[in-house]
Design a protein around this nucleic acid. Structure first.
Lengths: 349, 349
DNA sequence: CCCGCATCTGACAACGTTGTCCAGGCTCTA
DNA sequence: TAGAGCCTGGACAACGTTGTCAGATGCGGG
């Protein structure tokens, strides 16, 4: 039957609201403290009869072991921290889930937080996680200086950076091939006859954004196409400014005939702008987008495997904890060009 | 400069890898233990000169307070747990983020886990969170019996269920108006002339699915339309089976002229099926979908505000912790019908 | 019958922090 | 100059658990 006491009646009298401890269980079962501990942890050396009595007391009192005390004693928390940019971004959902699954397979819980792309908030979060003595950290860095982590690394906190490299510190890194992916995407547009290709991306201080920009430049250089300043818009992700940037590129007397977008959020906004254009403008976007295949035309993208990023990072993390992984390394996962129509439109000039 | 020692050299010798403690800081600064504690916690009663010396020692040693010990002493962990169905589902991303923001505003961290719609896994996760003595729990239940939480509620763990109600226990609940939303969505189709309307949804053992089905039935009953069994497909969410279900409804000699879909995943698959049809079939889906406005036609949906669900739940949680919230209650948030075209198509018969 | 051994159990310290309380030194006033 | 009061700092216990170690119990063999 449901508990019908009013909440006020069961508010904590003391700190944990009078939660029973092993001592209480021991008293009720008429055994010693350590015996309860043995039962709770499934250690051998307890007769079935004693175990039964202890188990009864545990159930009767609703005892739950206090992991804080346990951690204090044992030194391992069986939890890992994940700091990412924004949990609500569809790119990070699968990444986060993949980290969680690996953690679960190793019996660890996941504590996570969003940095909102703010380096201070990133540091604050990371240090809060360290204070909780997480066994390891998976970090999608917002900042570019992680020397504040040196004491943690020295203390043996396993650490892996994902999606973007660590700054000024030697640590494991798992990233996508942002440069190569962007270069291939832009080369794809060039191969379909485009010469005037726009680029709209995030602030170059964000490593992924810088790499994708570098890929754009490289593809253009490889094709011997000089880039005009008006084709590039950097540090722009909010819808209003992306829209303006795209519209300006298209309003030019010699407008771009194709646009390469630097991440999923930019792509979505540019799709909206292009949908309003009468002339066909080609588009290749970095990051895949749900339903991209159902739009008219389908959206050609350079897809990253977010789940693989998370999984790879988490697996490396636990290998660090195992001790089977020694030197920090940098892993680069390939991207995949998914052609769906928008990237294969011919230049409309 | 980066730390170039090989990882093996800095592996833990003892438990926390020789992390400095307050005692070490005190020794180095030449002060007492409690004085360090005072500095770390910003308590008054320390001269600036002493504080400076302590701070220097902290920086030199890379000291970080051990929150496990702190929690053990203080009884509050400043963390809350969130158990949801799947972090990778785009519906839960914003919900999770909203919970996180509220937690952050209250100085708490978020620990979360995915139940994968498995009641046992939900319980396992919840109890693991309780063992860590989270101050509160936000749970999107997978199971329908939560009596295992009774000891926790008695012990004063703040608890709020979101998206679906708790089973067999008296607790705070924040849900969307699934019944009303579905009824309005189906009524919208009826208002546009449809009589033969299909329903594809999840297992009715999931509360939201059952409520939406109830809404469908209610709207049909209100219009005096008897429902034929072949119009309903329940317990179906994976793409293959949703596709088959939709195709069967449309292949009938007297096919449905409109489909109401029970959640975002079903909607996406049905959109694909309808895109292949020559005849126009109307569609209203429960849950909003990114880019729904850019499809041809735009997808009419009954939108829930996932962020509001999360925010409301988390705020109630902290009000429980404040003590400003006494009796458990049930909050129902409204849904919003967003018309974009697919729901306004006339019947094609 | 007593000793030795194996098996089960419990007392105790320790983990790192914070709350309580008291000591010592200072200033201020009478 | 002595006493009162304030300010700073430190000793100590406690939080709930686990590792260590030693005691108790029972049993079989000499």
């Amino acid at each position: 039957m449901p508990d019908t006491t009013r909440r006020a009646d069961r508010l904590p009298g003391n700190r944990y609201g009078n939660r029973p401890t092993m001592k209480d269980v021991a008293a009720r079962a008429g055994v010693g403290l350590k015996t309860v501990s043995r039962v709770v942890n499934g250690e051998p050396g307890v007769t079935p009869e004693t175990e039964r009595r202890v188990q009864e007391a545990i159930d009767a009192l609703g005892f739950r072991r206090n992991d804080s005390a346990r951690v204090l004693r044992k030194g391992r928390t069986a939890s890992i921290g994940l700091v990412l940019e924004d949990l609500a971004d569809p790119f990070y959902g699968p990444l986060s889930r993949a980290v969680e699954e690996v953690a679960r397979a190793h019996g660890a819980l996941l504590i996570n937080g969003s940095s909102a792309e703010d380096p201070d908030r990133e540091q604050e979060l990371v240090l809060a996680l360290c204070a909780r003595r997480v066994d390891g950290l998976v970090v999608i860095p917002a900042g570019d200086d992680h020397r504040y982590l040196e004491p943690e690394l020295k203390a043996g906190v396993a650490t892996v950076f994902v999606d973007r490299p660590a700054g000024r510190i030697d640590a494991d890194v798992v990233v996508s091939d942002n440069f190569g992916g962007a270069r291939d995407g832009v080369a794809h547009l060039i191969a379909h006859g485009h010469r005037r290709i726009g680029f709209i991306g995030d602030m170059p201080r964000i490593h992924t954004a810088a790499e994708r920009l570098r890929g754009y430049r490289a593809a253009m250089a490889d094709a011997g196409i000089p880039i005009e300043d008006s084709w590039m818009s950097l540090g722009v992700t909010d819808p209003v400014r992306v829209r303006r940037a795209a519209e300006e590129m298209l309003a030019d007397p010699r407008p771009v005939t194709a646009i390469f977008t630097g991440n999923n959020r930019v792509t979505v906004t540019v799709i909206r702008v292009l949908a309003e254009q009468t002339r066909g403008v080609a588009l290749v976007g970095f990051d895949d987008i749900e339903l991209a295949d159902l739009l008219q035309p389908g959206v050609t993208v350079v897809a990253q495997d977010a789940a693989a990023l998370g999984r790879t990072a988490a697996e490396r993390l636990f290998r660090q904890l195992d001790g089977t992984l020694l030197a920090p390394d940098r892993i680069e996962l390939p991207t995949r060009l998914v052609t769906r129509g928008s990237g294969e439109l011919p230049p409309a000039d």
